[in-house]
Amino acid sequence: MLDATLFAGQVFNGFSLASLFVLAALGLALSFGLMRVINMAHGEMLMLGGYLAYLTYLIVPGPAAILVAMPVAFLGAAVVGGLMEVTVIRRLSSRPLDTLLATWGVSLILQQAARSVFGPIGVGVTAPDWLNTGFALGSLYFPSTRIFILAVAVAVLAGLGLLIARTRLGLLVRAVNQDRMMAAASGINTRRVDLAVFCLGTGIAGLAGVVLSLLGPVTPSVGQSYIVPAFLVVVMGGLGSMVGTTAAAIILGLVSALSQIFLDVSMSQVLMLLFVIIFLQFRPQGVVATRSRALEG
């Protein structure tokens, strides 16, 4: 019989993995939902966030370093994302395949740059003491790092939801999303809205990089290991829907964690891929069908 403690533990791990997936995938979903851009360099924004966290730890050591690193990584990745949008993506906006290739090129350049600056071997970020604890519930143990990552994901989702639903920028994003031509004819600078959303998406990836650095070393290719599940989450979520992205991240996180009760990690990855393929056979529109280029619903 299945051990209930093991099952509950894996459910927690599933949500923990889902929180990483959602942080890695939200930016992709945002830029794809609004601009139909597939940013192959999105993983490198995670990497950048990780290295910025490392640098912040060197400059501001101490228990609050992680709290300083988060805004630093968000802003740093957002600025680099903004530069990429202005110099590459905007100029190729009507050529999606070229955008794909160009952002892949940016991804290679950023990886090599990281290799040249920080070396091929990863750098470590030590979690502050207050994250090196955990609490036990019966025979279950919940590490603080994992709970922290979950809290960050929930905070990011709530913040993004509020931004989209309650602010003027959110209103403009929704308008551009629904009818780009009419938004422009109503006086909305659609290019500026695109830029803001792209910066926001890459900034969130930067944040994801900070929390990833708590789990393992930051390497030049750290983003690559999360980009594939992030793409899976975006596709399964319904290409651009925030609710769909979150739901898909939870489903895939749980599938991956629960399958590890019976399978090793590699087989569980195979199962996750198979699951997505079969899911899309039955529901090609994803968890949430997007009627327009949609961030809502």
Binding site: R168, L171, L172, A175, Q178, D179, M182, I188, A294
Partner: peptide, 23 residues
Amino acid sequence: YVPQGRHVFPHLTVEENLMTGLS
């Protein structure tokens, strides 16, 4: 501009549609 087919933003409320015009 009031285009043919109206092009209101379908998932925005009436008030939100009007607010986009303020841009």
